[in-house]
Design a binder for these strands. Structure first.
Lengths: 132, 132
DNA sequence: GTCTACTTTATAATGATTCTAAAAAGGTGT
DNA sequence: ACACCTTTTTAGAATCATTATAAAGTAGAC
């Protein structure tokens, strides 16, 4: 199974639940944005199974730490994740509360001129808020 | 009092508590970042008074809606605000959990090439994550 | 000053996330 | 396959930021 390696890389044993989470997260052609609750519902709908919230939090956080998922920096009461881990950005539609991918090529190069001593840049994320 | 107009503009009556909040928020020369709890503590320290959390939330949200405060888009368990409402960006030091201003001139022009039908851009915010 | 609508406050409610500890399952060695 | 030990899953409790509530206080208009 192709997900076993992903799990082992993330320091997780390949259990039944984790493989099912992988299937929902990584099996579709299109990447997508989700909250933990979205993901729980998606799992219930697509695999018709219940996985406890604690397990989902666990697995998602492990993948995030390993870079298999990205957190989207946005102020919301819930944390948003993205299965698209390529270097890209987001529109956030304030009226509909919807996130839309914004490819790197849609933004152009971003040149951070200021440096902070002893620190290196880990990521540069652009959030473009939209309104009607 | 210079804050009365700010409050009235935000649809708020100038009460004693709100004027005190204004003093802590807008009286200092330097702008700063804060969470609601930071602000509560700052008020207690600087004016030696207790204002209930509900009042602080209320006032901060009214100012945010009016553009007198900005929310900083970052995933954290708490919401961060900025008294610097000019068009600018942020470093976020992952190791220390610290925010640092990044002036517009430190980033250079950002050109969003993709358009979404019927939506206009309200803001463009860049978050640069730093690590050791 | 009186009146009415808006405010403040303490406290309760909500909701996302994390913790806990007991039961279940994975993995290794036999 | 079995025993054993560790990791994992789970339901439910705990935590913590934020929001709602409703009673007592205050601002502003007359």
């Amino acid at each position: 199974m192709k997900y076993i390696e992903k799990l082992r890389n993330s320091g997780l044993r390949p259990t039944k639940q984790r493989l099912q989470i992988c299937q929902v997260l990584f099996n579709s052609k299109k990447t997508f944005h989700f909250t933990i609750n979205d993901l729980k519902k998606k799992i219930e709908k697509e695999i018709n199974i219940n996985i406890s919230l604690a397990t989902i939090y666990n697995t998602v956080h492990a993948f995030e730490n390993k870079g298999y998922l990205k957190q989207i920096p946005i102020n919301s009461n819930q944390t948003y994740f993205d299965t698209n881990v390529s270097d890209h950005h987001h529109f956030y539609d304030l009226n509909e509360g919807r996130l839309i991918d914004l490819e790197n090529s849609d933004v152009g190069p971003i040149n951070i001129k200021k440096k902070i001593n002893g620190k290196k840049i880990k990521s540069v994320e652009v959030l473009v808020k939209l309104e009607a």
